[in-house]
């Protein structure tokens, strides 16, 4: 089984638009949205949820005020600033609580309990473009990495059950916890960048991350013609790093229209961006196919 992950470092470079187009172009695959924090792939693929699952992240401390003797020990030991004392009433701020359990362990009168916390949902869905696993982390919740792991595991199981050989995953921005969870042991990471100082800087960081985890990387430059010189420099940088630039997508107003209509670009348009994406997909597919053989 092959897993293709689309990442970028910088947000807003076009990850989801590309993944949605790949979804329309590829055969026999499962789609996974690993951006559980601000999931957007469902907006273009309109999946129908077949199975809704609860996700419990870290537990949260709860203080039983009937038992509490106001000794203040929990407040002194909590390193996350999650316990507050208002007029001799100790309370936990669930947004700051990381679920470590130090307060529960240390309370001399057992007034604190760690309670399971419903942090989000994950879904197995059906879409026009194939089966899809996606999720929604609750607002201001932690443990996005853990939820990404759940989504990836479910996508792999689904692919096995249905005899599908490919998983295409939309990754989160950044290089932190959910990106690391999305990236470990994938077959290929496609980094989508743009010819801007920020796009380039952030691409370098996410390429370093991929190297750190020994994940093969390839790059595509979106809206490359907005700054030809910078695109050229990015290509030279990739060449030096031994990274293939799998394709370049021109700026195309049709993309904004396709998105406004909530459709994958290659479905809504036959313009220059759509053509470039088709060619990128066939390059990627050849590369993934090569790996299997």
């Amino acid at each position: 089984m092959q897993e293709l992950l689309v990442i970028s470092g910088k947000g807003g470079t076009g990850k989801t638009s590309l993944v949605a187009s790949f979804a329309a172009l590829a055969q026999n695959k499962v789609l996974a949205d690993c951006d559980v924090d601000a999931a957007d792939l469902h907006l273009l693929l309109e999946p129908q949820k077949e199975k809704i699952n609860k996700f419990y992240g870290s537990k949260k401390a709860v203080i039983n005020s009937d038992k509490c003797i106001n000794c203040g020990r929990c407040l002194r030991l909590c390193r996350f600033d999650a316990i507050k004392n208002n007029e001799n009433s100790y309370r936990v701020n669930p947004i700051y609580c990381e679920g470590c359990g130090v307060c529960e362990f240390s309370c001399p009168v057992n007034a604190i309990n760690m309670k399971p916390n419903l942090s989000g949902y994950w879904y197995i869905s059906k879409s026009t473009y194939g089966p899809m696993v996606h999720a929604q982390l609750g607002i201001a919740e932690d443990n996005s990495g853990k939820l990404v792991t759940v989504v990836r595991q479910a996508a792999r199981e689904l692919a096995e059950q249905e005899g599908l050989e490919l998983i295409i995953a939309d990754g989160p921005p950044g290089i932190g916890c959910p990106v690391i969870s999305s990236m470990t042991a994938v077959s290929l990471a496609l980094v989508v960048t743009e010819p801007t100082v920020a796009g380039w800087h952030d691409m370098e960081r996410v390429i370093q991350l991929a190297k750190h985890f020994n994940v093969p990387v390839t790059v595509c430059i979106n809206k490359y013609d907005l700054d030809m010189q910078k695109s050229q420099q990015i290509e030279e940088y990739c060449l030096k790093q031994g990274i293939e630039v799998v394709g370049k997508i021109p700026f195309d107003e049709g993309v904004a229209q396709a998105l406004a209509g909530a459709k994958p670009i290659t479905v809504a348009s036959n313009g220059k961006a759509a053509k470039a994406i088709k060619s990128i997909w066939s390059n990627l597919y050849a590369r993934l196919k090569n790996k299997t053989n």
Partner: peptide, 23 residues
């Protein structure tokens, strides 16, 4: 940072005002 999970909460908390930039 982008998103709405723990790094964003860490950045936004204790602010007097928050501007949300969108497209």
């Amino acid at each position: 940072p982008p998103g709405t999970s723990c790094p964003v909460v860490a950045a936004v908390k204790d602010s007097d005002f928050c501007l949300l930039v969108t497209e």
